[in-house]
Design a protein around this nucleic acid. Structure first.
Lengths: 222, 222
DNA sequence: ATACGGTATACTGTATACAAAATACTTTTT
DNA sequence: AAAAAGTATTTTGTATACAGTATACCGTAT
């Protein structure tokens, strides 16, 4: 009960969170320097939590820290997107494969519900909601892989290009395909066919990759 | 030149390195508490770099930090080994697949040389040297995947159970198989057969896994 | 003897302080 | 005017200080 009222999260994490937001939505641009004194006065706190926040962000790939030189917002190039996606493809299909026997009937029902909801949202063109639902869908089987390290790796990859994945949901044609691919995946889960699940998820993620890749190629300035 | 003489690495990293060693060789045992004041006086430095070192080690999986409670050396259970290996299998085979077209003839020659060297070391039973050569072998194609994130992930996984992999090289029967599997992999690299390389590396890593798993099951106290 | 409660101690989280190094700026020289 | 050198300023890395919380210890009650 108390936990809900008293906020015990360390300052470092709160700072990391807001900086992460700033980087993701572009308020902090690639190449920009993040000096500790500036952030310190900006947030009205001491440098110690700032430093720890910067270490966190470095680990997540949002910034680069050069010893005795300071921190700089990292850039994301099309090559980075390729790097990330080729790993994501393998890890997410692995997660799905592992999840096959851990998913309850209720989990599968939830997958169906989410996908139905997405279908209904198509016409509203509510991109934010669609992105959220899609993430929910994937998170269900990733979580159910029950491999904590795998979950962390995938999370880490996803964080790194939230700034980029939004592209997937800007075109209605792609969304419809996403929903169809989701339905195939649900079907494979329902029949507990690990091999097919793995193959379909790999296919699904790769399709997202191709789509984003084609969208990005001319849009990203680096 | 100066760089070679003057050591500019931050204290935090040096501390992290020595603590990592202690954990890996068992001087610091799972469950043991790492309090900042103790480490501070132990190393004769202030708490600030100690804290940063602990964050690093947390990220590498060597310790767990509980907010307002402190740090504890993490345990490695047989389940952790499984978690790690199932990811390692996928990522290392992916790395090999990506490396196929990046490896130069000289790289392949180096792989052969290392494997020959391993063969010659079998009789000496120099386990330390064999472990090192094996790591060198794998590092060559991992590095040549040219996917920085993939390289970092694999490194991170490997670090986490250096305390465990030593098992692989305690039995001569396994070593001979390792060398044979390496030879097959080299052959596939030489013929630039990505699909075969991937399959063989997956097989190779899985075999190591099975071996270690059988060794560990009764030895690890948790 | 065991469970409970209160006090003392130790530890983490955050702030501040200082030295050494890196960067920015100014002046001088060619 | 451009390059070089020297100086001033900023910034990182590390140390120290302090407040609030968690842990450990001890006595008391059941």
């Amino acid at each position: 009960m108390k936990d809900l009222i008293i906020d015990n999260t360390p300052l470092s994490e709160k700072i990391a969170e807001t900086l992460r937001e700033y980087i993701m939505n572009g308020e902090l641009k690639p190449g920009e320097r993040l000096t500790e004194p500036k952030l310190s006065t900006m947030f009205g706190i001491s440098r110690t939590p700032i430093r720890e926040a910067l270490r966190l962000l470095e680990n997540e790939g949002f910034i680069e820290i050069y010893p005795r030189r300071g921190a700089v917002v990292s850039d994301i190039t099309a090559e980075d997107v390729d790097e990330i996606f080729i790993i994501k493809t393998k890890l997410e299909s692995l997660a799905a494969e592992l999840a096959v026997n851990n998913l309850t009937e209720m989990d599968i029902k939830r997958l169906e519900d989410i996908n139905d909801k997405m279908e209904r949202y198509i016409d509203t063109k509510n991109v934010v909601q669609l992105i959220k639902l899609n993430a929910e869908f994937h998170d269900i089987f990733i979580e159910k892989s029950k491999n904590t390290r795998l979950i962390k790796f995938i999370e880490s990859l996803n964080k790194q290009f939230k700034r980029v994945t939004a592209y997937s949901f800007t075109e209605m044609g792609r969304i419809k395909k996403v929903i169809n691919e989701h339905n195939d995946i649900i079907d494979a889960f329902a029949s507990r066919d690990a091999e097919r699940v793995s193959r379909l998820v790999e296919f699904h993620v790769k399709n997202g990759w191709k789509f984003i890749r084609s969208r990005i190629e001319n849009n990203l300035n680096h």
